[in-house]
Design a protein around this nucleic acid. Sequence first.
DNA 1: GATGAATGAGTCTTCATTCAT
DNA 2: AATGAATGAAGACTCATTCAT
Lengths: 213, 213, 213, 213
Amino acid sequence: MAINDVQTLFAKSLDESSLTAKQKAVLRASLTLFSEKGYDHTSTKDIAQAAAVSEGTVYKQFKTKEGILTAILGPFVQQVLPRIATEFLGDVMNTSYPDFADLLRSIVADRLSFALNNRKQLRILAQEMVANAKIIEGFQQQVDRVLPRVFPVIQHYQQQHQLVDWEPSRIARYMISTMMGYVLPVILSDTDTLDVAKASKETTEFLLKGLRP
Amino acid sequence: MAINDVQTLFAKSLDESSLTAKQKAVLRASLTLFSEKGYDHTSTKDIAQAAAVSEGTVYKQFKTKEGILTAILGPFVQQVLPRIATEFLGDVMNTSYPDFADLLRSIVADRLSFALNNRKQLRILAQEMVANAKIIEGFQQQVDRVLPRVFPVIQHYQQQHQLVDWEPSRIARYMISTMMGYVLPVILSDTDTLDVAKASKETTEFLLKGLRP
Amino acid sequence: MAINDVQTLFAKSLDESSLTAKQKAVLRASLTLFSEKGYDHTSTKDIAQAAAVSEGTVYKQFKTKEGILTAILGPFVQQVLPRIATEFLGDVMNTSYPDFADLLRSIVADRLSFALNNRKQLRILAQEMVANAKIIEGFQQQVDRVLPRVFPVIQHYQQQHQLVDWEPSRIARYMISTMMGYVLPVILSDTDTLDVAKASKETTEFLLKGLRP
Amino acid sequence: MAINDVQTLFAKSLDESSLTAKQKAVLRASLTLFSEKGYDHTSTKDIAQAAAVSEGTVYKQFKTKEGILTAILGPFVQQVLPRIATEFLGDVMNTSYPDFADLLRSIVADRLSFALNNRKQLRILAQEMVANAKIIEGFQQQVDRVLPRVFPVIQHYQQQHQLVDWEPSRIARYMISTMMGYVLPVILSDTDTLDVAKASKETTEFLLKGLRP
DNA sequence: GATGAATGAGTCTTCATTCAT
DNA sequence: AATGAATGAAGACTCATTCAT
């Protein structure tokens, strides 16, 4: 399953990296603080204290404060995101669901779980995307690279008359929008929790209705 | 039409307010700078310069920097938003569209235009909602107050078998999500422009399919 | 009696002055605020509000903030103080108390009352003397001018063997010190009140013992 | 002798404290500047420059500007003052002067020296006491705690008919007042210097006369 | 590698003072 | 005479970043 891969990949980038225990602590503390108080409102002093480390240590590996953000978001955006996309597409292709309904069910459940498991990073990502024009462009580029690879899949089901004959980008938009409708509130307010099973079922039900020919 | 009212209302709150020409310049400059660089990355010195005004003047009316934000977002969230909601519901009720399709077309076109016309404020609102736990709560409260008033309308069309028999909140969620799918990218990246007519048509088409019984 | 003269003199400087009602209000408000929060911690805005007057009005008569202080302390130090000293000496000389004890009783009662009646000004005076090297010099000059005129009186009683044969300045020092011992606590903490009658009696009793030949 | 202890104690609190050389420079510079220009008229920039240190360094140890004041006055009021009082009383009790005259001579010489050696701090203390209601209360509390411990000593000499039969608090008041009469002018105007030997002699002479039965 | 003292530019905010109306 | 909007120079404080130990 892709889900586990996501976590594994991200965990790996922490373990494989030539980071000392203290520097990992810095990253972990930063992840929490950034998602709680936002990047701008987190001082390097805060991070050092939360990581039980001196401020000097914070700057040993990550030359700047933005370096920490990059260390958290960079792999997420530039590696983890595309790679899981590829794997995921491989999954889809290999399994080659005969039914679009089955594919949709798989996609939705997978993505919702992913979002739930990576709430903190996604929250930081959202914060930075909204505050930082540069980040949003980087994200846009990744999306633009990944999305077209999904189009053939969509077209495949359109040819089999299982999907309405709209532009693939439009269909992708609705899929993403509808999932976001469940995910965004959870990311923004840490209070609510998401019943993934129910949400997946509802999302699939609506999308199947709305996207059938 | 509600659209014009929105603009009028907001324009009024600038004109009616006991603000000097210079103070209005402060507000206008802040609106632009906040939406461009974000609230945190805009210094009061920036604002003063952009408004061609001294820093002292900035603080004459708006006691604090946050006061400026409140002056921009406050009316938007606490007055404009609810008021247009009420007016809008009045519109809907009075006109009493016999067809849900007509209602939907009206809603979608209206909301998309509103979003487009208030891009900057919405961008700031998004920034603050993501960065500021308090703002998101205030927004949530407004939503919680307005949304239930829409439910009867939904139920009305359900009884007439024009709408699928799901919970009103779920139906509202999909309507909002789908519209957000068009609006969010425009808000976040000021580059793209939205073809409201086309977007309205597409949104309506999809929602009608997905929400019919 | 000298006491009333003091008040009269000070009141006169308010009434006689070519000040409008509003400007007098400024002076009254300043007197209160300065004595409560100190000169430095009182802003001209505070004064304007407390006097129910615009900031512009504050500056109409008193060109600067220090001008207000001068308007309050100036007459007190440069006119009122010396003048009452003169009058008082005239009193003493004219009445020509045969007994030093009678003179002392008169002096002490008079000065303690004066201090009590002018608490606020004295408090401000104390604040400024301690904070401001210039003020203390001005005060010192006045003291140096007034004090020598008291010496003959002291010497008179020394020649009559009613007063110990110390330097007049030393005798004056003890008289002032002892009275200050009662007055200072009252000035510094507005809470206590002084039983002038009792204090006068005690002070006189001690000084007579300590200063007799 | 208590005198040396005073200096030692205060010097210790500088040396023992975990302060860098630079931080001590900050404290020294502040002590001078505060006593010269007053707390309010000394900016943190002034302090930094006088200490040949960056403003950041000033704030490293002393979180706020008031923190510097506390670092200077705090130990003085809360530790040094009471401790020397205790030690001093120990001195008095142990030595158990048979003659009140001897005790008085000892007290007066000791206190006058102390005042002279701590001019700067006392000047700042005076400034703050007059400007700051809180400081004066803290000081009052210390006085209220220390003074009653002196009363038994006074009563002891009263029983031996060496001291007039007034309330101990009244006797203490005159002792303090008379000493203050010599000390205050020196503290307020840094120009004069005090001939401690002469002042002690005079003070004792007057008090003995004034306080004998 | 790790520390934390040191830096200094930058931030929000206050305030005495001026001036057009 | 009176107003209060406007000014801009400080002021206290923060923070990312560097460097000697």
